[in-house]
Amino acid sequence: MQNKNKTVVRSMDILNLFLDRFKLSMNEIVQLSGIPKTSVHRMIGSLEDMGFLHKDKDGYYSLGLLFLQFGNLVAERLDIRRIALPVMEKLRDDIGNAVHLVLRDGQECIYIEKLDTNHPVRLFTKIGKKAPLYAGASSRTILAFMPDDERERYVDEIELLPISSGTMTDKDALRASLELTRRRGYSFSRSELEDYTAELSAPIFDHTGQIIAALSSAALEVQFGEENLPELIHQVRQAAAEISRRLGCNETRSFG
């Protein structure tokens, strides 16, 4: 028990009782756990309030739906790199730019996969790199498709600090950009995380239709010329839609 919080450990002991039992009464939890009834009552109340336990009309407890949410999230995050990789490889070969797979990590995004290009001048990005949700096309794609209240709360509370010469530091401009991303189905950024670079990103949705990741193509700004940008947008959006389909997303979204 050294260096472990006693309440947390006891709470886990209670939750572990449900690994092979569908539901339990308060008295059964006390008997099986060996924890004093007053402590069990207090901890169960907290676990129920947080959604880890559910109490039915007969007073029996079972695991809450929050575990289903966590379980799906863990499963998808473990699988998404494997599922996305062949699509990313084809996209990289088709467009000749580096391709990234990005997930949300709290108030940041994190790059979990990167495929380099054979171009002699390459961007220095690496797996594990993080960026705030307001900066860069991938980050803003994730932010744009988050639930409305969560997105607006983030924008209200965050301080927009400049990272590079093109980083957005005006909240009205950020909100307008997020609305444009939702309408068009992609985000494009120039010199927001690193000068003279550009990133084009599209959303990836899970089987529930919720944003789970962003797919992006990144390169030097000069490689995103006006003449080839429409085709790049089409290819990145199509690749992101294919990954979404492979993740079980059957929802068809219409972007302008």
Score class of each variant (00 low, 15 high):
Gln2His: 15
Val121His: 12
Glu192Leu: 01
Met1Ile: 13
Asp116Pro: 06
Met146Gly: 09
Glu76Pro: 05
Ser11Cys: 07
Phe255Asp: 01
Val155His: 02
Ala213Lys: 03
Val99Phe: 00
Ala84Gly: 02
Pro147Glu: 09
Tyr61Phe: 10
Leu133Val: 11
Leu247Arg: 06
Ser177Trp: 04
Met26Glu: 06
Ser191Ile: 05
Leu174Asp: 05
Leu143Cys: 08
Leu19Val: 13
Gly209Ala: 09
Leu78Phe: 08
Leu85Lys: 14
Ser139Gly: 06
Ile212Arg: 09
Leu160Trp: 04
Met26Phe: 10
Lys4Phe: 14
Arg42Trp: 11
Val102His: 09
Leu123Met: 13
Glu113Lys: 08
Asn72Ala: 12
Glu199Ser: 11
Phe255Met: 04
Thr7Phe: 14
Thr208Asn: 13
Ser187Phe: 01
Phe124Gln: 15
Leu65Met: 08
Gln223Gly: 09
Arg21Ser: 13
Ala202Gln: 00
Ile14Val: 08
Ser189Gln: 02
Lys130Met: 12
Asp105Asn: 14
Ala240Thr: 02
Glu28Pro: 07
Leu15Ala: 06
Pro203Met: 03
Ile112Cys: 07
Met43Ile: 13
Cys249Gly: 04
Thr141Asn: 06
His119Trp: 15
Thr169Cys: 03
Pro120Cys: 09
Lys55Ala: 05
Ala240Asn: 04
Gln107Tyr: 15
Asp156Tyr: 06
Ile204Met: 02
Asn97Val: 08
Arg153His: 14
Asn97Ile: 13
Ile158Tyr: 06
Glu76Cys: 11
Gly248Thr: 02
Glu231Tyr: 12
Val236His: 00
Ser187Met: 06
Arg190Met: 07
Ser244Asp: 06
Met146Asn: 09
Phe205Trp: 00
Glu179Leu: 01
Asn118Arg: 10
Leu215Met: 10
Leu19Met: 13
Met12Gln: 12
Ile212Glu: 06
Phe255Glu: 00
Asn27Ile: 15
Leu24Pro: 04
Glu113His: 14
Phe70His: 12
Ala137Asp: 05
Met50Lys: 10
Gly136Asp: 02
Ala202Leu: 01
Glu76Asp: 09
Val8Glu: 14
Ile158Lys: 11
Tyr196Gln: 14
Met1Ser: 15
Asn16Leu: 13
Lys4Pro: 09
Phe124Lys: 15
Ala214His: 02
Leu123Thr: 05
Ala131Ser: 09
Pro120Ser: 06
Pro147Thr: 03
Phe67Gln: 00
Val74Thr: 05
Ser217Asp: 02
Asn3Cys: 12
Leu73Gln: 12
Leu73Asp: 12
Asp20Cys: 13
Leu73Phe: 13
Asn228Pro: 08
Met1Phe: 07
His207Trp: 07
Ala144Val: 05
Thr252Gln: 11
Asn5Asp: 10
